[in-house]
Amino acid sequence: MLLANFFAPEPMHIPDGFLSVTVSVILWIVSIAVIAYALRRVHEDLGERQVPLMGVLAAAIFAGQMLNFTVAGGTSGHLMGAAIATILLGPWAAILVLTTVVGVQALVFQDGGLLALGANIFNMGVIGVAVSYFVYQTIQRLAGERRWGVFVGGFLAAWASIVIASLAVGLQLALSGTSPANIAIPAMGGVHMLIGIGEGLITVGALALLNATRPDLLKADKERAAGGAAVWVGGLLIALVLAIISPLASSHPDGLEWVAEQKGFLDIARGPVYEIIPDYVFPGISNEAVATIVAGIVGTIIVFAIALVVAYSRRNRASVKN
């Protein structure tokens, strides 16, 4: 049972054959650039401690993915680990840890492809970590010193990292012509909105234990956060871009073409009886997409503004005290 779960392929790991060579190569290049920078940053921060700490924590994240809990009817929730790694280690070290985890999964266990490895590192390592960092830091700043920031931030970071990464997977599949955008993106996003809840709950459980036993581990990231402004902005941009592109891509133009085509075939196959369905689904879909995009942008701007105001007021208070 345990091992069956360990081997179960996850919907997040793209195997070979599903991505076009162009998409694979571009994401390899992006991932390599980010890893190279992360290696330098982590070496500056941790020096010679880097190898044992990263290696053992990568092993812990990998092994921690075996931990699961029964949800219902034979399904179970378990951990991907981007959020917890980011919270405990800071963004750059977390990128290296997840690169190692995803790399070994592909190289040894065929969980995800080798040509697709660049994309998988990008989705789980780069996107997962950047989004986790952005969400967690923002909520931490909003919460100030209060403890709920750790838990709410941890839950939302875990959830958002899973969902945004899954949107990226859907988008890459659509760009490769493997799966139509209007099916792949909503399906990936929808499934992972549920999976993300499990990830969030486990992350909160882990943070609660660490908060009770070693609160210093959770505080440590404040010092590292100083150099993390770029990651924070990166996470914001990734979240924003994917939240905008996904509904757009899933409704225009492929989606429209698809429905139009189906409508055409439908006419041939079934006569005009069912014509009314595509007719009133159209405006619904596009309005929904626009509404989602507007809500996404407005929400992000509000969070951004609040975070800035809070950060400024805290800085002013700090300077008054000094």
């Binding site: 921690g64 699961n68 809990f69 929730g77 709950l201 992350t203 459980g205 943070l207 036993t213």
Partner: peptide, 13 residues
């Protein structure tokens, strides 16, 4: 889920 999280936490510790 929380119990599993606690286990993950102690694994990381």
């Amino acid at each position: 889920a929380r119990i599993t999280g606690g286990m993950a936490g102690s694994l990381f510790l």
